[in-house]
Design a protein around this nucleic acid. Structure first.
Lengths: 211, 211
DNA sequence: TATAATTAATGACCCCTGGTCATAGTATCT
DNA sequence: AGATACTATGACCAGGGGTCATTAATTATA
């Protein structure tokens, strides 16, 4: 049975190579400008082969997004682990998110695509569901941190951890989205440094989570 | 000079008719699925004519978005006008935003498109800049409300009104985006009613704006 | 009123790109 | 060595965004 296993490994390696190539191409030219022929060339394969490994262009893009979410998840885990108090865990996760947005801007804007992507509920295959699952796992870390804070008394106990975590996640993502896309505009039209909005956000939230 | 003026009026009417038709088509089939031929047919014109009035498909879509933003702006103005205290103005604007998202879901998701749309800074024509201007006007209402609240003592004075307004705007938009797109998922996977996230948001913010 | 000039509208056409499929090539099994 | 299964290929197709030479209609001119 060694052969079929090696075949499986080869296939996964191929798949990874394609994702790697696609990432280079998409991140460089932008998803919309990049063509599947570009990806094929970068992967040193024919276009048809791409479709043996991925349903379509979107699926390939979602595969890249899964990687991004995984990186973010790791960052969240580290951030939460490194703090003792619940409220600090939450804050650290928030900071980790903003750092991620800066250091992995390409991944982040890819993830925004997924955020505004309506995956059809019928599809149980493909990378769309992986994205959803991975996002849920990432989100779970936030929820745990909030719960931890409630338990150790550093976060007010009258809030629902799940709802709060979901809300915070949505808020932070929205703010980052605006900053990442309209950042220049904010600076030009409003003479505000986008980073200060993040600080404003932290100020606001810190006040509202206090017991 | 009566003739060239009438010509101008005719042209504007045509333009409006096209936008109207495009709105029907785009809102019904979705922008991506709808073709310019669809729009042409709905407008009872040939496809080529559309391009006499709009740079391209995106520009036509942005024209629709301008309408959406204008509706939102009106709603903000009304909301702010109807309250006396600054903090209530802010809250009312927030509620108006959420109402808008529900009652004009199509416009809202169109506006999300603009939100994630990188308009090239070189373009000084087209509807993209109109979107930006209209958004800025809408945002100004939020800023005024915050300032009003600081002045009348219903909002803590140690915050910057512009930064706070920008931040709140971003936060609210982000939350609404997540709800509008992942609402079903939130309900299914997390057993949380999306509307409760909005309440959570209001709770959080109310606490942090208090003097 | 006849003719020229300007403007508006058309739809056949181009071309790019996502996606397919019959064919060819290569490794594995018998 | 031949049969079988799996992988890869690239010519090809379809659909849609965008263009442009041509036509029709309106207005200005003689």
């Amino acid at each position: 049975m060694g052969i079929s296993e090696r075949r499986e490994r080869d296939k996964e390696r191929r798949r990874a190579e394609i994702i790697e190539a696609a990432e280079r191409v998409f991140f460089c030219k932008g998803v919309d400008n990049a063509t599947m022929d570009d990806v094929a060339e970068a992967a040193e394969l024919s276009k048809g082969t791409l479709y043996l490994y991925f349903k379509n262009k979107e699926d390939l893009y979602l595969a890249i997004i899964v990687r991004g979410i995984t990186i973010l998840q790791r960052a969240f885990e580290e951030a939460a682990k490194a703090r003792k108090k619940g409220i600090d865990k939450v804050a650290a996760i928030g900071r980790a998110y903003f750092d991620f947005c800066k250091t992995h801007a390409q991944y982040f804007s890819a993830m925004l695509y997924f955020e505004s992507y309506n995956l059809d509920p019928g599809a149980d295959s493909g990378y769309g569901v992986q994205c959803t699952n991975q996002t849920n796992r990432t989100f779970a870390i936030c929820e745990e941190a909030v719960q931890f804070g409630i338990d150790d008394g550093t976060i007010r106990p009258d809030i629902d951890p799940k709802k709060t975590a979901l809300t915070l996640y949505g808020l932070a993502t929205g703010l980052l989205q605006i900053i990442s896309i309209k950042g220049k505009l904010i600076r030009q039209d409003h003479h505000v440094n986008p980073d200060e909005l993040i600080d404003t956000f932290f100020d606001l939230i810190a006040k509202s989570l206090r017991p």
